[in-house]
Amino acid sequence: MIQGCENPQIDPLPRRAPRVSYRFADVAGTLNEPGTLALFGFAAGAPASADPRYLQVALESFDTPAPLELWQVDGPVSCGRDGALRWASGGGWLFAAIELDEREHGGPDATAQRAYEQLHRFVAARDARHVLRVWNYLGAINQGDGDAERYKHFCDGRAAGMGDFFAEGFPAATAIGHHGDPHRLQIYLLACDQSGTRVENPRQVSAWRYPRQYGRTPPSFARAMVLPARDALAISGTAAVVGHASAHHDDLSAQLDETLTNLEVLLASADMAVGFDTHSPLKAYVRHPSDAPQVSDFLQRRLPGVPILLLHGDICRSELLVEVDGWRYA
């Protein structure tokens, strides 16, 4: 049974983007702040909470202690659970998350299919049915060769579960391998009662047009999404990919340079000013813990003052060492 209040009336004015920030704070106190739509903890030692708006993300932070990630919206927020799915809504925005155990659903493809079917069914019944951003975290993402790789199975299952979920176009998205329970699939999303504007990178082939060498089913995401009021850009996982090929195999410095170039091109494609600032929180996913200091030094030098959360995660291609996603506010 779905718990919570009735859906709010749709406001014709463009929805102000959720305010995303990192902070060192108490979980319970932050959840009690007005407009808290979602709150995320990182690392196995992150505080626990039964509140549906709180999600303990299956990624370890290289920062000790790790900050919380907070999403806040204008207006009151209601929340609840629907089976394995948790949700919160307010101000025209919707947060929804689901965690499933692959052992209970038949492997990575069947589990991804079930997760996306449940998300689709839930979101389709809400006013905030325009999915703008999705995060996918799965264990052992690069395990297996060729079409047997777990990430490719995930892509197959995601596509099977989508149906017409993204009939209007794919959302911005991230898919990263976590180092927790290898059977755990974790997906969460941000949706709105108004649509956004998809952004592609002219230096890259659109992900859904990748050639067969990347699997039976190409990844299904836009490179970025301009939110309805054009006051923020939600940036997908971005790495050293040029055209459709990975660049600079096993060269961390060159991959970081290429990734930053792709980020700047995305800003230009979205008609946003060059560069990131202190209000533009980013995440950097790093494959090898030994690379974390170099990644941190590079980002601090090239993006001074930008809030960056450094996380231990495997990129969906085994030759890629780092990936960056996040937010850019206008």
Rank of each mutant, 00 (worst) to 15 (best):
F166S: 10
A44P: 07
R302E: 10
E264Y: 11
C192W: 04
F62Y: 14
R86Q: 10
D109T: 06
Q72M: 04
D325H: 02
A173N: 15
Y329D: 06
V57Q: 02
D51T: 06
L263M: 14
E319D: 15
A97R: 01
Q9H: 12
C79A: 13
L94C: 12
Q56N: 13
A247K: 05
R328I: 00
V226P: 01
A48I: 12
L263Q: 07
G196C: 00
R223S: 09
A191S: 13
R198C: 11
E264Q: 14
F42Q: 12
V286I: 15
T259W: 15
V295Y: 05
H178Q: 04
R19T: 10
H312T: 13
K283I: 14
E99S: 09
L70S: 14
F154H: 10
P202D: 06
C5I: 15
H279S: 13
V241M: 11
D314I: 05
R328N: 08
I315G: 00
W208P: 05
V73G: 09
T197S: 13
L100M: 14
L119C: 07
G215K: 00
Q113A: 08
P293V: 05
A224C: 08
A245T: 13
L303Y: 01
V73S: 03
S206T: 11
G326P: 03
Q194N: 06
E99I: 03
A172G: 12
L31S: 08
M272H: 07
S49C: 12
G92D: 00
R121T: 13
S195Y: 10
V241T: 00
E99R: 10
G144W: 00
I315Y: 02
H248I: 02
P307W: 00
Q56M: 12
M225N: 08
E168A: 15
A247W: 09
L185T: 05
E60I: 00
P218V: 01
Y188N: 07
G35D: 07
K152N: 02
A175N: 15
D11L: 05
L119T: 00
S280I: 04
V241Y: 02
Q194G: 07
G196W: 02
P219M: 08
A284S: 03
D82F: 14
R121K: 15
H312F: 02
L55T: 09
A330V: 14
G275K: 12
L37V: 07
R301P: 08
L55C: 06
T259G: 15
W71F: 12
S220N: 15
F276I: 12
D314W: 06
R150F: 10
A110P: 08
L311K: 04
L263F: 08
L299V: 01
E117C: 11
V322G: 00
H312A: 12
R302I: 11
V199W: 06
G243D: 10
L189F: 10
L263P: 03
V57N: 03
A160L: 06
H244K: 04
T278N: 12
T64A: 12
S296Y: 06
I315M: 05
G106A: 08
P307F: 04
Q143W: 13
S290R: 10
E319W: 07
A273W: 14
A112W: 01
